[in-house]
Design a protein around this nucleic acid. Structure first.
Length: 550
RNA sequence: GCGCCGGUAGCUCAGUCGGAUAGAGCAUCUGCCUUCUAAGCAGACGGUCGAGGGUUCGAUUCCUUCCCGGCGCGCCA
């Protein structure tokens, strides 16, 4: 990042001195491929036509100017429009110093500029325990929240509880029927009901507490069961999420929202803006005017609300609470819902770019290559809690966050359990643990490492592997920023893999404690400490622990 | 039928607001532990970036037409 900023500033200055505009296209980044060796940075400028100059002459002139900068070690023309730039070792060594200035905050950014963002995720109906698919959404949402905070946004994480709809009544009914069944009565099962074992558990719990329960009239019984079951399941969800290191600031109840009259208020807004109309006894929202492919019902002809209706009110409420930006994380099977929600956002008078949806693809749960089916209603699924118990929070989270969210993910329990590179979380954690081991040994030998390193010592870090590692650490800020702007936490896991790779390469070739020179040992310890800080910060963004030993 | 998301090495996937010779891990093969953690390192092998056409100095990336896979198209949530 510093490298990038430094180069950008240099180029801007030189171009201005030559009375030329900043080019329409400028790429300044470390070369992506290792095949380009240890180049520090790569500059591609598309100058020429618009500048009215001979591109080659211009590149030559810029390269010459760049060479005059004290931080630049070399600047060479590497093809049409390309200048390869390497920085001096001293330039990279300062990266260590910059990490030391504030180890926990290195890499954090102010791009967010304090903008308030609400991230809504998981929001699973409390009709059953969370399964593995919810786990992916939870990991993505929680990590995104951490990432955005780190990038300077004011983030608010929220869980929307759909406790008002038909599914919830069905839950109450399912428990109620189980209660009656357990009490030895004849029961007729409806078509759609929750068949999971957990329903029986809840029913038994209720019956144990109140043996007279089963003789209540249906209406009352269902209400009691619904209330109890929902709270019980919600408690379970909260516990599962806590174990998965996921936190929400607010658990927002749909029922409370509806009771507050917010839905009617939202309707009024739509009506005033001319977006709604009555037809066939129902209230419609003309979403087709706003990019949807058909109009949507808000209030059904039987007088009840659609899910969409309260969702509009909910999003309206979010904006009313003052958030500048909303990010919703949904299962990819809800993608058809996006256009109508966008329509609602603009009908509420907001810009559609104030609303982002991250679609999280389904998780293919496998065990040794064989697929495991999941269905809440049929009662057969692998719960998040089971998976976490089996493979651990770290491994699961890293797996979920190692792929971009809109692509399918094979989650093989056997593979994730393995401590191999099929499961890269260990590769990264191992790098951290290795550094800790060296730092520990150093302390045992009485070596004391001052909190700030002198540049005189750092100047001893001139090995290629050292410069590459420092360059990699320098990139962290840039990665955080682009991951935040693209709402893509998986960039962090890839960055961590690369960083761990650089560390392992360095570690294998160069001795730290056995460097044979006390000053060199100190300098290398400083570098390792900086790398440790970056690894720990990156892992924390993923919600994965950074162990001191493994 | 319409729409959304995918198709990149044998496998699992990065990279995609146009940039150099398309990367990583796994698998296979070859080396490396008397030295700070071998859960590691170094190297080899492996590609018509689904297919065709277009846009331009340049396309895995943008446009277009197909093919394949997943999902969605309720007065369900």
């Amino acid at each position: 990042m510093r490298a990038k900023n430094h180069l950008t500033a240099l180029l801007q200055r030189h171009l201005a001195a030559m009375n030329l505009p900043w080019p329409a296209k400028a790429v300044i980044e470390p070369p992506r491929e290792k095949s380009f060796g240890d180049l520090a940075a790569n500059v591609a400028l598309l100058l020429g036509k618009e500048a009215g100059k001979n591109p080659r002459e211009l590149a030559e002139a810029l390269a010459t100017a760049l060479r005059e900068d004290s931080a630049v070690a070399s600047a060479d023309i590497a093809g049409p429009g390309f200048i390869n730039v390497t920085f001096s070792p001293a330039f990279w060594q300062e990266t260590v110093t910059r990490v030391e200035e504030n180890p926990g905050a290195f890499g954090s950014s102010r791009v967010g500029n304090g903008k308030s963002v609400q991230v809504e995720f998981v929001s699973a109906n409390p009709t059953g325990p969370l399964h593995i698919g919810h786990g992916r959404g939870a990991a993505v949402g929680d990590s995104l929240a951490r990432l955005l905070r780190f990038a300077g946004y004011a983030v608010h994480a929220e869980y929307y509880i759909n406790d008002a709809g038909r599914q919830m009544r069905l839950l109450g009914l399912s428990v109620w029927l189980r209660v009656r069944e357990l009490d030895g009565r004849d029961v007729t099962w409806p078509e759609d009901w929750y068949k999971g074992e957990y329903i029986i558990d809840i029913a038994r719990e209720m019956l144990d507490a109140d043996p007279a329960l089963a003789s209540l009239p249906d209406e009352q019984g269902i209400d009691r069961c619904f209330e109890y079951a929902m709270n019980s399941i919600l408690d379970g969800i909260k516990k599962d999420l806590a174990d998965f290191r996921v936190s929400h600031e607010v658990w927002f109840s749909e029922r409370a929202l509806v009771a507050s009259g917010a839905v009617e208020k939202a309707f009024e807004r739509l009506r005033e803006a001319g977006h709604s109309y009555e037809q066939d006894g129902a209230l419609w929202f003309r979403t087709t005017d706003l990019g949807d492919d058909k109009d949507r019902v808000l209030r059904k002809s039987d007088g009840s609300l659609t899910y969409f209706a309260s969702d509009i009110a909910y999003h309206n409420d979010k904006f009313n609470r003052g958030f500048d930006q909303l990010v919703d994380i949904w299962g990819a099977d809800h993608h058809g819902y996006v256009p109508r929600m966008r329509a609602a956002i603009s009908a509420l008078g907001k810009k559609t770019d104030q609303f982002d949806v991250i679609l999280v693809q389904l998780v293919n749960l496998l065990k040794g290559g064989e697929q495991i089916a999941m269905s809440t209603r049929a009662g057969q699924f692998e719960t998040l809690a089971d998976v976490v118990a089996e493979v651990g929070t770290d491994a699961s989270r890293f797996m979920f966050l190692s792929r971009k969210s809109d692509s399918h993910l094979d989650f093989d329990l056997e593979l994730v359990k393995q401590r191999s590179l099929d499961n890269p979380v260990y590769y990264v954690q191992y790098a951290h643990a290795r550094i800790c081991a060296v730092l520990r040994k150093a302390a045992e030998r009485g070596i004391s490492l001052p909190p700030r390193s002198e540049s005189r010592l750092l100047s001893l870090l001139i090995e290629n592997a050292e410069l590459q590692l420092m360059r990699q650490l320098d990139r962290f800020e840039d990665v955080v920023e682009s991951a935040a702007l693209n709402l893509a936490p998986h960039h962090i896991s890839h960055y961590l893999m690369e960083t761990a790779g650089e560390l392992h390469s360095y570690y294998a070739v160069h001795q730290v404690l056995g460097a044979g020179n006390d000053e060199l040992t100190l300098a290398r310890l400083s570098l390792l400490r900086a790398a440790k800080a970056v690894l720990a910060a990156g892992l924390d963004l993923l919600g994965v622990t950074a162990p001191d030993s493994m």
